[in-house]
């Protein structure tokens, strides 16, 4: 296990996000799934953004998991993730559908999945 995983960020959140408190887009839920997109050049990315891109290269993770693995407050992680989606380094996967009919289907799928674990 990497000792880096639980390391708390030593840098003040404001420095990490370049002084901004809010993401450029408001699309991130705690469970939005994020994954690296292609192999864009990483030159010029801040150390924190580099760590996020490195982490996301391995596969999909939720916003909350990315924050947890990197020891970042969720609010800070959202700002950085938003920048990285804007710059094309990351992309998001669709999350829960909104329509009522599919909500019922979704709940049924959750229920079936839970029952299968008994």
């Amino acid at each position: 296990m990497s000792p880096r995983r639980n390391e708390r960020s030593l840098v003040r959140p404001h420095v990490v996000t370049g002084g901004r408190a809010h993401p450029t887009r408001n699309v991130f839920d705690l469970v939005t799934l994020v994954i690296a997109a292609g192999d864009l050049p990483r030159a010029g990315l801040s150390p924190e953004k580099l760590r996020i891109v490195e982490l996301c290269r391995g596969g999909a993770l939720s916003v909350a998991e990315i924050a947890g693995h990197l020891g970042l407050p969720v609010g800070v992680a959202k700002v950085l993730l938003s920048d990285l989606v804007d710059s094309g380094h990351l992309t998001t996967r669709a999350t829960a559908p909104a329509a009522q009919q599919s909500k019922v289907r979704l709940l049924q799928e959750v229920l079936d999945g839970l029952r299968a674990r008994l």
Binding site: L30, L55, G59, L61, A94
Partner: peptide, 21 residues
């Protein structure tokens, strides 16, 4: 050049499209 961080992270399965909480 996989970092230690990425290699022992339990990622969400590739086929997963929906996450709920």
């Amino acid at each position: 050049m996989d970092s230690a961080l990425a290699s022992d992270t339990p990622y969400v399965r590739d086929s997963v499209r929906t996450a709920v909480k």
